[in-house]
Design a protein around this nucleic acid. Structure first.
Length: 827
RNA sequence: GCCCCCAUAGCCCAGCGGUAGAGGCAGGCGACUUAAACUCGCUCAAGCGUGGGUUCGAAUCCCUCUGGGGGCACCA
């Protein structure tokens, strides 16, 4: 590496200091957090753990640089910071690699983990290496299975038949997040639906609490993420209304957010793919038409189906429903614009006041009746009106506004026993079954006589059989199903032959509670120790990409509430503060091999050194903004680090010199910058912290070259402050400076410099004088000047007297010591 | 279609009611050097996307529009 490590004139060599300090830090282990005798207050700083797909990339480098600033800052502030790392090590890429290489996925996974771990060490991440966990280890996933059984026992894990995303070319189900615009994210093939019996977690039971508890997160989480979660949970208030159906004993219930428009319902729609539709078709003798239409709908890919401007389609079922409030007979249709798994899978159609219903009504010539007065007739304009207004054609609701009409109709429905107020969520239960190998086996045995039998605790973990290569090739069912030795077992209850559940869990299950396992990663008795959880949790600071704004964070919040209900946690929200870092782009777009704009982290580190890259990441802008690597200058970062480093060589006083007698101007700069930097770190303004340190370096340089000189104690104080502040971002350079300043390692535990409040007050402040808001003069005053003195002085200033030209001020606004504004009356 | 965020020197960004600029990149000039690199010093540069409003005073608060980015999209 000598070709890029060319030393500058004075010898700042980033690569040499990396080699020098790494082994020292390894032996000092300054970020170990597990000592029970440690009296420091505790703080939990968490970075989202990586998926081990190859080496670390630029995105990791940004995220971990930012997390490190926070973790290192709190250590300097005297906290015992737990800053753990591990690997989200189950998942499909490992399985695909294993098929290609004819191996078990474990091999590829562990190779990548080893590589990432080495890169993190070189990158000087302040992790507590004693707490490492890998979700693919049986020691970890056994507790996934334990947790699953806890959920199962409480009825929160259940199986049902449902249409799931299916990729025909990969021969496997896909998670919703793996379906991008109707296509498989890996092979780009069109995704279809397939009916399968799958395991679900009843997250919908927690919908209201997931919504309500967001109040705890206000201010700690980005508003944007809270908004996305609210939308995802999608609470809507309305009513359920029962419509009797001719020839059917049971009524059909619909959910509506506009029960006030019930008198405008002119037909009913049921979701074409719902069991109800098939049943009603049979009732109306239209099964053939229904089936034909259903097949047409199924043939349409998700991409086409999701197009918003798609024309509405449907088929009449030849069934009649009765409007419960006016006895009107209305036809029932089936359509695909009504979703089978939202609400009741059936709606009342009010074409005058719902655009979708109107589109449908116009296409099939169904009646349109206005029940909320509006200027324009939807039947003519083709635009449904949804505004508040006076109700008409609505019997008891006539004359009422929407709010009153809603309340009234709910009363009416209740009195008649044909409906009630109701709340619906768009959140669905979480499908966790995967027909994959590289995941946690679901710890259930299917017994012909006992049914679903949980694997007893003492038999956990149910470990994966060692399959590799072609055995893992997707065949439409889990590869585990073909591992007969593994699948065939005895029922734990009756001892008769039975089979294991052959599916594995969604890997989001693994990551929904990993922050708890870090407390105690080697615990063989329980998933985690509740006493430790009480000490360390909730996580005070979580750092990660906004990609996980919904899924991972929602699932973690759900698990936390379940564990709280079980009595193992004394809090209900896992992450108090959340920082979402932006992405690292190149020339305005995401880096990718196919685009040819991929910047390799290891190349950057080789060329500029670790500290310069970390500094560039932190300095590029606010942490939540994207960084365009084309806009940053790692060479500039390195130049700055060399400049800072050189200061240490110019300090000629001895360590421990009392700064009190030092140059007061420099001391004031130092203390002000240390003070402001702390506030900036806590406000996530890391780029500003770097700017402040640059400012301090500039001031110190000036003091050495053309001010008080290198012997002055204030220069030592300033240089030491630079080293400590820099230790948050550029630990190698900071450590080297610290040593050159005559200290023992490590600067990471040096402690935040103590700020002397007396040094934060300026000697003088420039006061500006405005006349009618325009600046007319400025002069220096004491910072503690009174309003009266300041006004008196300002009124006597020559420039002020001139611009007043004898006029009498109507009003004088004084904000000592910075401003006087003289307002002239009238004109 | 609905909702959210952003807009400050050539560029990345501070400032978030009171002097438009903390810091960096790029540019210019100079010092060091035989010369260059490196380093150091000095310097140039925007009136805060647009139009209105509130205020003694607006880059900062409110509204409009424009331009960029993001989320949700037949959820009844």
């Amino acid at each position: 590496m000598s070709e890029h490590a060319a030393e500058d004139r004075e010898g700042y060599d980033p690569h040499a200091i990396q080699e020098k300090w790494l082994p020292v830090w390894d032996s000092l282990a300054p970020f170990r957090s597990g000592d029970p005798a440690d009296a420091r207050p505790k703080k939990y700083v968490l970075d989202m753990f990586p998926y081990p797909s190859g080496d670390l990339h630029m995105g990791h480098a940004e995220a971990y640089a930012l997390g490190d600033v926070l973790a290192r800052y709190w250590v300097q502030r005297g906290f015992n910071v737990m800053h753990p790392i591990g690997w989200d090590a189950f998942g499909l890429p490992a399985e695909n690699a294993a098929i290609k290489r004819g191996e078990n996925p474990l091999t590829w996974t562990y190779e990548n983990i080893a590589q990432q771990k080495a890169s993190m060490r070189r990158y000087a991440c302040s992790f507590d290496w004693d707490r490492v966990l890998n979700t693919c280890d049986p020691e970890y996933y056994r507790w996934n299975q334990w947790l699953f059984l806890q959920l199962f026992e409480r009825g929160l894990a259940y199986r049902k038949d449902s249409a799931v995303n299916w990729c025909p070319s990969c021969q496997t189900v896909l998670a919703n997040e793996q379906v991008v615009a109707g296509c498989c994210e890996r092979c780009d093939g069109a995704v279809t639906k397939r009916k399968l019996n799958q395991w679900y977690l009843r997250i919908t039971d927690y919908a209201q609490r997931l919504l309500d508890d967001m109040s705890q997160l206000e201010g700690g989480w980005p508003e944007k993420v809270l908004l996305m979660q609210r939308n995802w949970i999608g609470r809507s208030e309305g009513a359920k209304v029962d419509f009797a159906v001719e020839g059917r004993a049971e009524p059909v219930t619909v959910f509506t957010t506009r029960p006030d428009t019930l008198f405008g319902a002119t037909f009913m729609i049921v979701a074409v793919d719902s069991p109800l539709a098939a049943e009603l078709a049979a009732l109306g003798g239209t099964s053939a038409e229904h089936s034909t239409y259903l097949e047409q709908v199924r043939a349409v890919t998700d991409i086409e189906r999701q197009a918003t401007d798609r024309e509405k389609t449907g088929v009449p079922l030849n069934v009649t429903a009765i409007n419960p409030v006016n006895g009107e007979r209305i036809p029932v249709w089936a359509s695909d614009y009504v979703l089978a798994d939202y609400g009741t899978g059936a709606i009342m159609a009010v074409p005058a006041h719902d655009q979708r219903d109107l589109d449908f009504a116009r296409k099939y010539n169904l009646p349109i009746r206005v029940v909320v007065a509006a200027d324009e007739d939807p039947a003519v304009t083709g635009v449904a009106t949804a505004d508040d207004g006076e109700h008409i054609n609505s019997g008891p609701l006539d004359g009422l506004g929407t709010e009153a009409a809603v309340a009234r109709i709910i009363e009416v429905l209740r009195e008649r026993g044909t409906g009630d107020a109701s709340i619906n969520f768009r959140l669905r239960d979480w499908l966790i079954s995967r027909q994959r190998y590289w995941g946690t086996p679901i710890p259930i045995v299917h017994c012909p006589s006992c049914g679903e039998v949980p694997v007893p605790q003492e038999q956990l973990p149910v470990t994966l059989p060692a399959l590799s290569g072609d055995d893992l090739r997707p065949k439409g069912v889990s590869p585990l199903a073909a591992a007969t030795d593994w699948v065939n077992t005895l029922c734990p209850k009756c001892g008769e032959p039975a089979t294991r559940d052959a599916d594995t869990m969604d890997t989001f299950f693994d990551s929904s509670w990993y922050f708890l396992r870090y407390l105690d990663p080697h615990n063989t008795q329980s998933a985690f120790d509740p006493a430790l959880a009480k000490q360390w949790l909730p996580v005070e600071q979580y750092v990660g990409g906004v990609t996980h704004a919904i899924l991972h964070l929602l699932y973690s919040r759900f698990f936390t509430k379940v564990l709280h209900d079980i009595g193992l946690l004394d809090f209900t929200e896992p992450f108090t503060r959340l920082l979402n870092q932006g992405m690292v782009l190149m020339d305005g777009s995401a880096m990718s091999k196919s685009r040819g704009n991929l910047v390799r982290l290891s190349d950057e580190l080789d060329e500029h050194g670790v500290d310069a890259i970390r500094l560039s990441m932190v300095f590029a802008g606010p942490p939540e903004d994207d960084i365009d690597w084309a806009d940053v200058s790692p060479a500039g970062s390195r130049k700055f680090l060399a400049r800072a480093w050189r200061l240490a060589g110019d300090v000629t006083s001895t360590p421990g010199t009392d700064p009190a007698t030092g140059d007061s101007a420099l001391r004031k700069v130092t203390h002000k910058i240390v003070h402001e930097s702390a506030q900036a770190v806590e406000g996530y303004r890391f780029n500003v912290v770097v700017a402040r340190v640059m400012e301090l370096v500039n001031a110190t340089r000036k003091a050495i070259d053309s001010g008080c000189g290198g012997t002055d104690p204030a220069v030592r104080e300033a240089a030491e402050a630079v080293a400590i502040l820099l230790s948050l971002v550029a630990p190698y350079t900071a450590e080297e400076m610290w040593q050159r300043l005559g200290h023992e390692p490590t600067v990471m535990l040096a402690g935040w410099p103590v700020v002397d409040p007396a040094l934060l007050v300026a000697d003088s402040v420039t006061c500006i004088v405005q006349v009618n808001g325009k600046i007319r003069d400025r002069f220096d005053v004491a910072p503690d000047i009174t309003d009266a003195d300041l006004q008196a002085q300002a009124m006597q200033r020559e420039a002020v007297v001139d611009s007043l030209a004898g006029a009498t001020p109507a009003k004088v606004i004084v904000r000592a010591p910075k401003l006087v504004n003289i307002v002239l009356g009238g004109a």
